[in-house]
Amino acid sequence: MKTRQKDRGIPEPQSPWDEIRPCLWMGGHFWADRSGAVHPAVVSNEFDLVISLFSRDGHGPGAGTEHVIAEIPDGPLTAHQIRLVQQAARTAADAERNGRTTLVRCRSGYNRSGLVLAQTLIELGSDAPTAIALIRRQRSPWALNNHTFEEYLTTGLDVACLLSGLDTLT
């Protein structure tokens, strides 16, 4: 499965993960320091829950940390994959309501993690434009640069799921 779109001239993030709001963090598996050197972002026990939309051996989390893996591509999603996003977002929202620290991560921590975290914020009462703006402000202006994901959020994932499922009816 293809999991990341080709590099589109977008820089690696400047930190392994960033706090979007209390208890909710967004990150990736790689980040770049000021010199541009790329480093792995390895999670040990910093979080109570880690939701990985991309996974790589050796990147954690440590023993005792709940780890949910729901790999999805950084591109158009099937109805099934959109439902995975919704499930991951509900899991993150429930964790936040219970005061558990949660990291949602993908490869760089821009698109897939942004999609799930924005949907989490929507589950928690935000509207899509506010959730997207918060993620870009807290993580990076490059967050949610996948316009398809932004359209899923502004349309609503339930509608996006129905529309994506139309391909399977023929």
Rank of each mutant, 00 (worst) to 15 (best):
T154S: 09
G114Y: 02
S113F: 09
A131C: 08
L134P: 13
P129L: 08
L121W: 05
E123V: 05
Y152A: 01
L124Y: 01
I122C: 06
F149T: 02
Q119L: 05
A133K: 12
A133D: 09
L134D: 14
I135G: 00
F149P: 06
T148D: 03
A118T: 06
L117S: 02
L153E: 01
R137H: 10
D127H: 14
E151Y: 10
Y152S: 04
N145G: 15
T130V: 13
A128V: 10
N145D: 06
F149Q: 01
I132A: 00
L157A: 04
L115Q: 02
P141R: 07
N146D: 10
D127L: 11
T120C: 08
R136V: 03
L121N: 08
P141T: 07
S140E: 03
S113E: 12
P141C: 07
L115C: 06
V116M: 00
G156L: 11
L144G: 01
T154N: 14
A131H: 02
G125T: 08
T148K: 02
R139M: 09
T155M: 14
E150R: 14
L134K: 12
L117R: 00
W142H: 10
E150C: 10
G125R: 07
A131P: 04
T155F: 14
L134G: 09
L144R: 03
L153S: 02
D127Q: 12
D127I: 11
Q138T: 11
P141Q: 11
T120N: 08
S140D: 03
I122F: 07
D127R: 12
G156I: 13
G125S: 07
I122M: 07
N146L: 06
I135S: 00
R137W: 15
L117I: 06
R136P: 01
S126A: 08
T154C: 10
R139P: 05
R136S: 00
